[in-house]
Amino acid sequence: MSEMAAQGKEPEVLYWVGCAGSFDARAQKVAVAFAKIMNEAEIPFAILGQEESCTGDPARRAGNEFVFQMMALQNIETLNMYNVKRIVTACPHCFNTLKNEYPALGGNYDVIHHTQFINDLIKEGRLKLKGGGAFQGKRITYHDSCYLGRVNGVYEAPREILASLDNHLVELKRSKTNGLCCGAGGSQMFKEDEPGDKRINIERTEEALETGAEVIVANCPFCITMMQDGVKAKDKQEEVMVVDISEMIVSNNRL
């Protein structure tokens, strides 16, 4: 972003990578996939790089408002300095915080999740699907993340993308408004579970395996981690893949 600003250019959209996309090995692959898609569609985008910080979501939901405010106010300073108007992110938690929580702190942006963004690109004809790829004709299932689905009501955009790719979607028993959490939200990602009968990701993975799908599609880096762990715990990693929607596009278009 700073380079673009120095050259006096304004990107069409700022890609908010988020901590997972930046540092988590698996989510980095998704970040690359999404960047490839934007390049393919010739979208001039920027990232903040070192100037991006955690949105503060995990701190806020754990109860640590101080750390949240520190992150949020700093990010808003940066975003406002670059006069950012539109933000796309591949993380539903970043998406929710940027979209719904930053306005109260003085950060007002048009925030969109990458599944919505990609769906729009396809609809507008800016991204042409070539067909084929590793997922062609496969039996897949789609896991609604809480913060994209139930919290922000985005159920259709990702499903529309899936429908435009060649595959056979089997819905999970609990989907859309009834979707079951993967177990990562509310800062559960960063601590051990409380005592119980089962881990939440196992419950959800079992449900996904019941559909007989070979591919579990997600839209959130934390869901991917959780579901991947679940699949491993069930010793199904050879048969079942856990992917982000953007990776299906990359494979479809062989980017």
Binding site: S22, F23, Q28, I47, G49, Q50, S53
Partner: peptide, 13 residues
């Protein structure tokens, strides 16, 4: 600025 302690630059990916 990240919940994980990582030494890498944020845009290393």
């Amino acid at each position: 600025g990240s919940p994980w302690q990582v030494a890498d630059a944020r845009d290393k990916w």
